[in-house]
Design a protein around this nucleic acid. Sequence first.
DNA 1: TTGTAGGCGTTATCAT
DNA 2: ATGATAACGCCTACAA
Lengths: 342, 342
Amino acid sequence: MITIRDVAREAGVSIATVSRVFNNADAVATDTRREVRAVAARLGYSPHGAARSLITRRTATIGLILPDLYGEFFSELIRGVDHAVRSQGYHLLVSSSHADRAEVDAAMALMRGRVDGVVVMLPDRKQEHVPLAPSRLPLVRLGGAPHNGDGDAIVIANREGARAMVRHLVSLGHRRIGVISGAAGNSDAEERIAGVLDGLADAGLGQDALLRAAGDFSETSGFRAARELLRSDPRPTAIFALNDAMAIGALAALRAEGVSVPSEIAVAGFDDIPMAQFLDPPLTTVRVDISAMGARAANRVLSHLGNGPSGSGVEIVPATLMVRRSCGNPEAWRPTIPESLS
Amino acid sequence: MITIRDVAREAGVSIATVSRVFNNADAVATDTRREVRAVAARLGYSPHGAARSLITRRTATIGLILPDLYGEFFSELIRGVDHAVRSQGYHLLVSSSHADRAEVDAAMALMRGRVDGVVVMLPDRKQEHVPLAPSRLPLVRLGGAPHNGDGDAIVIANREGARAMVRHLVSLGHRRIGVISGAAGNSDAEERIAGVLDGLADAGLGQDALLRAAGDFSETSGFRAARELLRSDPRPTAIFALNDAMAIGALAALRAEGVSVPSEIAVAGFDDIPMAQFLDPPLTTVRVDISAMGARAANRVLSHLGNGPSGSGVEIVPATLMVRRSCGNPEAWRPTIPESLS
DNA sequence: TTGTAGGCGTTATCAT
DNA sequence: ATGATAACGCCTACAA
């Protein structure tokens, strides 16, 4: 390994000077600086991150802890976080597939001395109160319930979004709505259920307008749940899956059963799967800008590190109702075509 | 910050002993070990990563450098890499959005002392010969051309996949095939073009069977290119977009123009967008297991670090032709339904 | 079984 | 403007 010493020796200066050059300290003669840079380039030297952060007490890295990495949701999320983080000169340390709280704690412990702050998405509701005690790192929670005691958080407007969807469905004349719920204990799912109830209440409809079927956010569970809903009598005229993956599963089930969508049964989803807009039959969804959510979380952490404007508390990311028109109509595709081409 | 000293003092032992406990050294009395663990837990101590890796000369982290993070491709990729890496107790440092070689080099320099090895996906063909010189890290290239001088690499069977697709299209009777090419200079795209030519040659067809339109792997460019292909006379009976995103753009264009798919014009794609199978009109694609590709790359790096079986050289990930039947037929959806449910 | 001490590569504080 | 040197938190011979 080639160290700062090698550069110093080769350039005929002290290591302090080399260090100054690489830290853009001003008190270095222009000639010296140029010489050092040249030698460093020739030797292929670059500072050692670990050594630097040991003395500096900053790693220029933020950690991202996720429950799982599946589908476009996390792709978007990581992209948002990465973008925000890099724009401030930080690195991104990703750790995913943490099914329970113990694993999250372990991941956080492993991150000590590797990151300056961390964005955490908890896998489960009952594990939502993050222990700020052991970890003294700036921490921002991502997703989950809005009111969650202490700490910063970026959460989705789950309740409002679901409420808007139900109101929309009711306005289309639906009086019997099947809801495919999310993973048990998942607070995003629970918030959305609450929003569904809100929406029904808004419309003055009772619980009999609601048929529930259990899902776990997976496509397979959506397929299964939709088939179950079809067996109820009378069956629903609309199915609202609490995330897009399950909505897609539901579409597959309806197609398999020969049910036409949306004329016989309308299908709605929730989340952000950009490609959902290309699906046929059409899927009305509540869209969330996941990438922006990730960026906000990252910026929040960075703000605690002294970068950018500071903020704290719970921030809510809007969930917007996206209505798709019937699919046979070319107009329905219009929104997917860039403005400049239409 | 709470250090190993604090634990040592509190537990009434030396820091060496505490260190031994945390490194599972055997030469520690059971009582001592238990006591140290208890104190550490009470104090919320965990070893400092930077300090540890400074002396250990290993960071237990591997880096992943990517050109961009868009769509499910990278989600899958990261998932594969993350999984492989974590199973060996390593962390994952992600750095994306590197549009050109200079940025890749910068990212690699920044990673010195932060990672033990690195997986790099180059943004561009002419930048494919990675400089192993400055970086002494184990490095595995991901994607790109198979024969690329020195170094390890995991690449997609681009040529074979594209060839299979063309042969398939020809076997369906298509004699005029529009190809939407990929980003200029992108070697995956170039390999696929070569495969297309192979396929035509196999069928004894000349260049007149091929209509080319330029794309850049974006959905928008696919839309634009498809519209261009429609204007040619005679127009193609099949359109093969060199990745799925462009294929989706092409579908939108055909729909906008009122062309029915696949009866009037068949559309084919390339890559791995799992959701592509839910699209209607149906999209025949060459599927690549991106997640597995990421895992292989990671394992290759890890093998150079002494974990698992060693290997070297270029490894090729298969590209499989996935044929979708007509969409009006419920059978077409069958493959998307889990076995256990059908 | 446990403690002592040197050093990992860098930055920061003093001198000069 | 530059150089010596003490940390930073930890691991690991070597001693005890």
